[in-house]
Design a protein around this nucleic acid. Structure first.
Lengths: 125, 125, 125, 125
DNA sequence: GTGGTCTAGACCACA
DNA sequence: GTGGTCTAGACCACC
């Protein structure tokens, strides 16, 4: 029960999208597996002082995406197929592509980019 | 006309911001130098089938930033000091930070991320 | 136990309604006749991992409809008059109406619809 | 400009879903083609005395489905690829499957079903 | 208890 | 002008 999500109303990214991204990543990272139940709409809404509809919107879109499953009268859960369908590294692709594109426009070499990335990631892991 | 701009109305990023980012990068990469003239608002707007006000907004914001300067009755040009003011690598920071943050949430190691980045950048450069 | 019921919590149709429809059809098709006993609420609930109240709701509504009758202390059974009261083909009307309506909106001809239906029904029967 | 949609708040089907189905069918039937603009959210909402958010929800979901395309600051339009991607007859599949399944449960023959369907469709077309 | 739908109204970003 | 986001609150269906 990963009851802790991190939602910040001040970020430019919409709240419902912050939630969607986090759920997707938890599933991809294997921390949420098929069948695992998610916190109820009202629970998240209360915890983060957010409107239930905002949470509901995220859940509904994730259901349309096939990541979550509706269990009528019960909490939503991770969909059966969503479990291993998406590799963690694939979810990083959009962010990586942005780096590659911008680096090219800036005329940076691969070595320069990787050096900068190493510096930002620290030595952990 | 120092190279063509790439504006896509379907991208999630606002058009005026796409333009701003590209101008900043061209300046940082040294492809645009102090005094170089930029295409007119009308020219870009016509070429990309975009509302002239959108282009104008980007130019005005870049002027406020000190990247461009307005020349009475003539085309806008790269501002005198803007030339070397910004290091190219610094403009890559936001994109890199996004990679770092998402990789952490996905539980990926530094090695995995760099390997994926290398694959995406090819061997060129 | 006159054949197994097929209840799927993931279907959009409510579970209690899935059960009701199936009982009605079994009666209309003559596979369930007046006096035949139905599985107990607990039996169905246990078999399909469904809340007993859901099964009970279906049975009660069918009783109100006159399809089932409650026998003191014993299992419910098909009501006396329900047997031949409903023509099988009439129960198909809602499904047929939906096909007719949607086909019209799609601009399909009667021939196209029937051809598609034939393909889906195979040649059996 | 197919400005006329048919939305009925009394139907059991949610309004936003009624709209979605109709748009999908208009696209599949070729009455709406790639690039065609749809009425604005506010226009539909005003015409049918419905809350704009309800319409917006339908449009957003259709965009997520790839049927519609957002044109920032302008009306939404049919997405480039959605045009011929879906055959009209395929959209009829769910309704046909329901008929096939229910007919089987009712013990009806193919001939009986088709006869009933013919009667319901009249002789038009 | 769960999620779904809809309303009324506000504010924002973009073009 | 366009759509997007969010809130507050109501009502409903299902379990």
């Amino acid at each position: 029960m990963p009851s802790r999500f991190h939602l910040d109303p001040h970020l430019p990214e919409p709240i419902y999208r912050q939630l969607m991204d986090q759920v997707r990543r938890l599933v991809a990272a294997g921390q949420l597996r098929a069948g695992d139940e998610l916190p109820s709409v009202r629970a998240i809404a209360a915890t983060h002082a957010v409107n239930p509809m905002t949470i509901s919107k995220a859940y509904s879109l994730l259901e349309a995406e096939g990541v979550l499953q509706r269990n009528r009268g019960a909490a939503m859960s991770v969909a059966d197929g969503a479990d291993g369908g998406e590799q963690a590294i694939d979810l990083l692709t959009p962010a990586l592509d942005r780096v590659v594109k911008e680096a090219a426009q800036l005329g940076l070499t691969q070595a320069q980019v990787i050096a900068a990335l190493r510096k930002r990631m620290g030595n952990a892991k």
